[in-house]
């Protein structure tokens, strides 16, 4: 094919499918409301202390995001087109979760997921391992599979003393698998436990009983995160003592 016709073909495709040719950042990060961008192919730890409410709003957003429309622009859609390097905690940032046609997998060793509280708009697989060791084995299998963009590992209700028995080499192995397969692993922990995670954040929220009568979509704006290394030493000590 000549160079002239090839460039014409590219121009025609760009004109006919403008959405597909917009800049995508999902190759690098996933965006969730209330969270900074999640790096793809990596482990992200989100510390959700037991006294903090609202971590399930993240699961809700992943499960209940509307599927992308054909003509949705990147600034107003949640779907395949992801926003670029916009401010992660901007209150009006549009959420752009991983592609909604692919199943979302939740590894839930504490069997705490409540199906009746969600209306999923995407395929969903719920795993209930009996203990954290089997949770890591399940995560290992899914990371090796490489078909899924994001895994959720909910360890928030597991006692930190139990989680500290997991050797750090296991987490480093999972990190290597994630980097190889390109699957992101978001781990919810009750305390800072995963040193191997390149991205570590602490969830802060201040929900009251009055918030329970508000619309769920509006509550995600109340979620705040702070990188763990930004916490003061005292705050870190408090987190560790509480665990």
């Amino acid at each position: 094919m000549s160079a002239v016709s090839l460039s014409e073909l590219r121009r025609t495709l760009r004109e006919q499918f403008p959405d597909a040719h917009q800049e995508r950042s999902y190759a690098d990060t996933y965006h969730l409301p209330g969270l900074p961008p999640l790096p793809k192919g990596s482990i992200t730890e989100l510390v959700t202390p037991p006294a903090t409410s609202g971590a399930t709003l993240l699961i809700s957003h992943l499960l209940e995001s509307p599927p992308p429309t054909a003509n949705s622009s990147s600034s107003n859609s949640s779907g395949n087109n992801f926003s670029g390097n916009s401010s992660p905690t901007h209150p009006h940032q549009t959420s752009a979760p991983p592609p909604s046609q692919l199943p979302l997998v939740l590894i839930d060793p504490s069997n705490a997921f409540d199906p009746c509280a969600y209306s999923p708009t995407r395929p969903f697989l719920w795993l209930k391992p009996r203990d954290p060791d089997n949770s890591l084995k399940a995560a290992d299998l899914l990371l090796r599979d490489g078909n899924l963009p994001l895994l959720l590992l909910d360890l928030a209700l597991i006692p930190p003393t139990r989680l500290r028995r997991i050797p750090s080499s296991s987490w480093y192995r999972l990190r290597t698998l994630a980097e190889t397969s390109g699957t992101s692993l978001l781990a919810l922990t009750p305390a800072p436990l995963i040193a191997a995670a390149p991205a570590r954040h602490h969830l802060q929220s201040s929900f009251t009983l009055a918030h329970l009568s508000e619309i769920r979509r509006d509550l995600t704006l109340h979620l705040q995160t702070q990188p763990l290394h930004h916490l003061s030493n005292n705050q870190n000590k408090i987190l560790n003592l509480k665990s």
Partner: peptide
């Protein structure tokens, strides 16, 4: 421009492994 499972047979194999690991009642 639509993403689906890259390798459905591989995913099915992974599901079978998960079933063997966790038990059919736990996933």
């Amino acid at each position: 421009f639509q993403k689906h499972l890259r390798d459905p047979n591989q995913f099915a194999h992974t599901l079978n492994q998960l079933t063997a690991l966790l038990g059919a009642d736990n996933l």
